[in-house]
């Protein structure tokens, strides 16, 4: 019997059409990300440019605790409830 929750095949193979790529954002340049936490924050800063801005958008001067607090604040503003096991 087919289980509708199970997917074992493959999808896609086609690059996203240009008309569906956001033009308002681009990859960070020259930024060194030290951890997964850095990556999460940097991604949110790119995807939601209105959210937070500080000098060069650089995370290098922030310690771990500050970064965690920053991420929590960003989640709060975006309405993201931290997922279980996060």
């Amino acid at each position: 019997m087919e289980n509708k929750d199970i997917f074992d095949g493959l999808i896609g193979g086609r690059k996203l059409s240009k008309k569906y790529i956001r033009e308002d954002i681009s990859e960070l340049k020259g930024s060194e990300l030290q951890s997964e936490l850095d990556r999460k924050i940097a991604r949110l800063m790119i995807l939601h440019p209105e959210l937070v801005r500080f000098r060069n958008n650089s995370l290098s001067g922030l310690d771990e605790l500050t970064k965690k607090a920053l991420l929590e604040d960003m989640y709060d503003v975006l309405g993201v409830t931290p997922l279980r096991n996060e």
Binding site: G9, L10, I11, G12, L16
Partner: peptide, 11 residues
């Protein structure tokens, strides 16, 4: 709005 686009998945 934005979305995550899955380009490829393969088991």
């Amino acid at each position: 709005k934005g979305s995550v686009y899955v380009e490829r998945v393969a088991s």
